[in-house]
Design a protein around this nucleic acid. Sequence first.
DNA 1: TTGACGCATGCCGATATCGGCATATGATGA
DNA 2: TCATCATATGCCGATATCGGCATGCGTCAA
Lengths: 107, 107
Amino acid sequence: MFNAIAEPQRREILVLLRSGERPVTELAQELGMTQPGASKHLRVLREVGLVRDRKVGKQRLYGLDARGLRPVHEWAGGFERFWNESFDRLDAYVRNLEQARNEGAAE
Amino acid sequence: MFNAIAEPQRREILVLLRSGERPVTELAQELGMTQPGASKHLRVLREVGLVRDRKVGKQRLYGLDARGLRPVHEWAGGFERFWNESFDRLDAYVRNLEQARNEGAAE
DNA sequence: TTGACGCATGCCGATATCGGCATATGATGA
DNA sequence: TCATCATATGCCGATATCGGCATGCGTCAA
């Protein structure tokens, strides 16, 4: 999952799909990539469940299934307190924790 | 940034550093990896600014600087409405968008 | 200065990734 | 059935990644 969204083009695909399903060729065109390139990225996204596809005639429409991004959001959110404090205060905070850790028992 | 946190071990390092600064060897020990392995991952995290280091005697303490995770959090949050709806409703929503997109002008 | 410690770096081999190209597959329509 | 369109897959070369190992470099203590 984290790996799937590590690729800039795949993130662009997901952003594009927020405004609706699209066939592969259209995605490739909008992102300035080849059709096989788009298909490969879509495959990765499909394998982690971030997109789903349904066949419509000759085409295959890809749509967003962003549920897998929720864990990502929550994981990053677990660090929210660290970026909300000013960096100086954070530094002091970290030092305090370090001190407490060294004085306490093994973690 | 997204690439840096795509690695499970690097994510574990960040989680560990939430509770305080740590020297390299201790991180390596806690994560069951070799010291060079830990150093390499820390280097990647340092290059994207997710950790900072300060020298204390012979040791080098690594601390968290999670500010770079804020864009990640916000990017994933941009998909929140998609995972908050039930998947059936999401599907209808997506179909509506697709319909509107096809009826409208070129995007 | 020497030795020991903590850490970083370089090298290696194995594996994965990515883009581009050609081509296979599947569905449609004549 | 045959041609065509839309898409997927296979192959290739270039590049990146990762783990493990050895070793270099800086720091401290004696």
